[in-house]
Write a protein that binds this DNA or RNA. Structure first.
Lengths: 230, 230
DNA sequence: CGACCGATGTACCAGATGGTGAGTTAGTTC
DNA sequence: GAACTAACTCACCATCTGGTACATCGGTCG
């Protein structure tokens, strides 16, 4: 709320304050501090995993202190849950923008798959957080009231597309929206999440920009071929 | 912590030895000790991740001591690499048994996909290790001379099936063996690796036995539909 | 039998780690 | 301008962690 740079100038008697980030003026700003911590924590947890991330290091990379992490979040685990909640919320709000209702079912599916593909590619940190959370058997998601039942807009959109395809008689009927979502997610998540071992063993980088169009096309063809088979 | 009741039973002159596991007789057995450590470490690393696993805990779950871990493996990281090497070797040796050469291309592909499906489902710990290794950007695999170039029998088999399919004119030609392997792996890995977050958010367990046949069928249909499309 | 060396157990450590008690500063309210 | 409280700093801690120095044990070989 309300920015008012009380006295920016060199007049300050003591305490240059503020450790790291750019030459900011704000001295006390709860929301800024909180957001700063959350941003740094997101990077660190995504990078090092839950057990691998260090509260001390997160604090150091912040423009505030470790004490503030405990002040705002309570502890390592709660901080991690806050990171997850923010990450999921962000992703879900982006997904809300999906608009493929105007296309015919087959093209709508292809478009949705393509958008999901782009989407995953642009958010590798989110994918990493999800992988990390799976290593922990989603125990933190389960513990979060915010995340437990968080619906997925992509699946809803998928549901209406499928329905239209069924009505038009062009889609097979032995699958539901979640099945199809699973297939699309599997493809998109795998190429990001398993990029490194796949690359190390097969010598092919699944995220190589030179192969991107081919991969994107492959996903579209895959889903469409499957749904329209027979 | 190995209890050794120096003189519990009056009969034994000294040292009943061996702390934990079943009433074994062997007193000094390097291979057994090494294998014991490796087995426990595999479980712990797969369960807790690299950073989350504790050398002390691994040692405690062993029938030997922490000192032996350092004696045989040198350190935490080398132990972890040894775990990875053993896990990959085991999986690869199992894959060597794939035999689908006698089937026609379409059926061979479906069979290979199905076997891969079964295979992944039976080795969740391996999938977890792979996920964990990806969190660490495959740095340990890169550091292992054994693993860096380890070929994958499944991909070779896939290559010959594809070739036969192309010769017979039944498969599309804009993909290679690695692409198809990627698709199959993505499906199989995803349902195990992302089981928990998927379950927490959508309320569907991808590994639910009741849905197993459907999922297996779906993978086969998916790959076949894609390869034979048009 | 005695020397040799691989295998093993005990005790210990320095630094890191998550976490906290308690005091201090700044902005706001009356 | 005094009182009040949210925001923040500083120093500190108990415990854990990976790792190691060192003594010792036991099978084998000459």
């Amino acid at each position: 709320m309300a920015a008012q740079p009380s006295e920016v100038g060199p007049s300050l008697p003591d305490d240059p304050s503020i450790g790291a980030a750019g030459g900011v003026e704000r001295v006390r700003d709860a929301e800024r501090t909180r957001a700063d911590i959350l941003a740094v924590a997101t990077r660190e947890f995504a990078d090092q995993g839950y057990a691998g991330a260090r509260i001390n290091l997160i604090a150091d990379k912040t423009s505030t202190t470790k004490r503030m992490i405990y002040y705002y979040f309570g502890g390592k685990e709660q901080l991690y849950i806050a990171v997850l909640e923010q990450a999921y919320s962000l992703i879900r709000s982006l997904e809300q923008r999906l608009d493929v209702e105007h296309l015919d079912p087959v093209e709508a599916i292809r478009e949705l798959a393509g958008l999901t593909f782009d989407h995953h590619e642009s958010h590798p940190d989110f994918i990493r957080l999800v992988s990390i959370e799976n290593i922990h058997r989603a125990e933190h998601i389960a513990r979060s009231t915010v995340l437990s039942g968080l619906a997925n807009p992509a699946v809803d959109v998928l549901g209406t597309i499928l329905q239209r395809g069924w009505d038009a008689g062009v889609f097979r009927q032995d699958v539901d929206a979640l099945d199809v979502h699973q297939v699309i997610s599997a493809f998109c998540v795998f190429r990001t999440a398993n990029r490194h071992t796949f690359g190390a063993i097969f010598g092919r980088d699944m995220l190589d920009p030179a192969r991107r169009d081919h991969q994107r096309q492959m996903l579209g063809d895959l889903v469409v071929a499957y749904l329209t088979a027979r």
